[in-house]
Design a binder for these strands. Structure first.
Lengths: 351, 351
DNA sequence: GCCCACGCGGTAAACGTTTACAGCAATCGG
DNA sequence: CCGATTGCTGTAAACGTTTACCGCGTGGGC
């Protein structure tokens, strides 16, 4: 492999100084003749700029990190799908971190910003601890947080509005005549878990429905756990007629268990998921799901970060993406509301 | 933010030379006293090593790139999920490229290896062109290809065996008594498309079934396209009794269309997908699917690359991951073969 | 015909590390 | 008691760029 050509090799071959080579390569004003010679030499040698040396001098890596809680979670993937092209278009590479929602790993990522291998970071922590906030304040590079963060945190922030989202779903169920509406939630010490639980309670209250502890079960944000929680709920409240699930995976678990228990969906029990992932459209019956705009949030986060990287020191900005209820067969009855091809068309929404 | 501390700042503060600081930081033999002073200074200053400068000098970036054809495709995601932790454990960061299966983009990625911002690359091209091979030969860093590559290519290579995979599926359908077995394939100029098409033909021949052009439809590897192709097939061959789909997305499209056409699955038409993605377990009826070991392939690729990065110049190696048929309700009848929790347990297979 | 301005291009320093080499003190063997 | 060895440490050069600065030659204005 012979240790590729450098700017020096070119300079020698073209008979000019390395400064000139650099200038040509960067398109700075240079005499035509010189440009020609340098270009020719570069071509012949198959020269490619060394990104590392460049970064060292220019203090810009043209890399951005995205720390996702879980590579397996389709909601984060939806973000990733949007983030990637935005960054790419702006000439940034994407470094992917998976933190498995482990706080220590997230802190690690924030700490590693000090190594300066990226120009900025997009992060979506499930839990936000005191330590997160400290590290955030001390961060050596701009950070955009996807998810809610306390008032006054000095970081750009993109939020979903799961409160309104849950509200949309409950109203929908209510309008369908459901009155025994259960909730299957994830851990309450997570940001989304807490928000969704509170919103559920609030929505019931506003509709004049009683809050019944037996109707609320806590599991984890995964399919098997969700199923387990549903089984528990069925045990206590056999006549439940609707389930609000804190995400789509839980809802899939709910479908599994309901089917096994001989309940018809939606005739006996209507099911609503959350995040409107690809799985919602793939399942059968297709899941009604509250879209929290994962894609839009990803896009917004990427754009905020780019803006901050290019622009200067504006005040931190908060973007809130409105939720949207996507109605499918799991609530809308036998009409098999065939929304079909999954991704493709959903282009409304977005602030 | 004040321009973070460098090795120089520490040296000054600790009253030693920068060489000593570097030595301490790298754990090279040093007097206890010196170690103490340096560590203290580093701590007080909140020093973090600059990765870029480090890379420049050491010629190692501790980054590896993964170029996936499509961030949306669950098969690639399965790879990603395995690649990420392997790299992380070895101290490498992951740079993610999405090429949208566009040849020019893939070539771009190969070319950019010359920038030396990564130590190696894992790539999974859908098509392999002459240009790919040229660039591969000239690549400035080790590359592992996931997918088949011509004999004699000097690159590590991880393959699926879709030939055997298709065979498993067809044999299964045959054993269930199906004789009018259709195939919905992706483009024939892709590596997997070609392989799967040929394998289908072969499998039929071996079973003594006639090859009927009307039973084969070509679409693309997506859901809507898959559905369209199935509709076409139904039109020509109304009594088709089984469908071999070239991937799970196509199979989902098939389920959509069959349902709309009033065909029962599997009673009237059995459906087999391929790749055994999460979607297969989520759909209803759950899809029988041929696992081509995406996860295993990802893992193997990462391990090959690491080995090459650490070890020296061994001969290129080819790893083939055996396929596995995962039987679910879409072929196995009403028994609703509840394989449930999606990921979690499937731990067999793997070479 | 001089001086100044201007356009180019070269020299060298810097970015923050790692590391070869040399120097120096202390220790050991003879 | 001296030379050689050993154990640490400091100096300086490199890694491959970008860029501030300076010098040179040309052309124009007076």
């Amino acid at each position: 492999m012979a240790d590729g050509p450098t700017i020096n090799t070119i300079a020698e071959r073209a008979g000019v100084s390395i400064a000139s080579v650099s200038r040509v390569l960067n398109g700075l004003p240079t005499r035509q003749e010189t440009v020609r010679k340098v270009m020719a030499a570069a071509d012949e040698l198959g020269y490619v700029r060394n990104a590392v040396a460049r970064s060292l001098k220019s203090r810009r890596t043209h890399q951005v990190a995205f720390a996702m809680a879980d590579v397996g979670n389709p909601a984060y993937l939806a973000m990733l799908r949007e983030i990637q092209p935005v960054l790419k278009a702006a000439g940034y590479r994407l470094v992917l971190h998976s933190t498995d929602a482990v706080v220590a790993d997230e802190i690690d990522v924030l700490h590693s910003l000090g190594e300066r291998y990226v120009d900025g970071l997009i992060m979506s922590p499930l839990r936000v601890t005191e330590q997160h906030l400290e590290m955030l304040a001390a961060a050596r590079a701009p950070v955009v947080i996807i998810g809610s963060v306390p008032e006054g945190t000095r970081a750009d922030n993109v939020r979903a509005d799961s409160r309104t989202g849950v509200r949309l779903a409950i109203d929908h169920l209510y309008a369908l005549g459901r009155r025994r509406i259960g909730m299957i939630n994830g851990p309450l010490d997570t940001v989304p878990g807490a928000a969704r639980g509170a919103a559920y309670r609030e929505a019931l209250a506003d509709l004049g429905l009683p809050y019944d502890e037996d109707l609320v079960r806590i599991g984890d944000f995964y399919r098997a756990e969700g199923g387990r929680a549903v089984a528990e709920l069925l045990d206590r409240v056999p006549d439940v007629d609707a389930l609000m699930c804190a995400n789509d995976l839980i809802a899939l678990g709910a479908l599994d268990v309901l089917r096994a228990a001989g309940k018809r969906v939606p005739a006996d029990v209507a099911v609503v998921g959350m995040d409107d992932t690809d799985l919602a459209a793939a399942s059968w019956p297709a899941l009604t799901s509250v879209s929290l705009g994962s894609a839009e949030r990803g896009k917004a986060a990427a754009e905020l970060l780019l803006d901050r990287l290019q622009g200067g020191d504006r005040e931190p900005r908060v973007v809130t993406v409105p939720p949207r209820l996507v109605i499918r067969a799991s609530t809308a009855g036998a009409g098999a509301a065939h929304d079909d091809a999954g991704r493709t068309e959903r282009k409304e929404g977005g602030a």
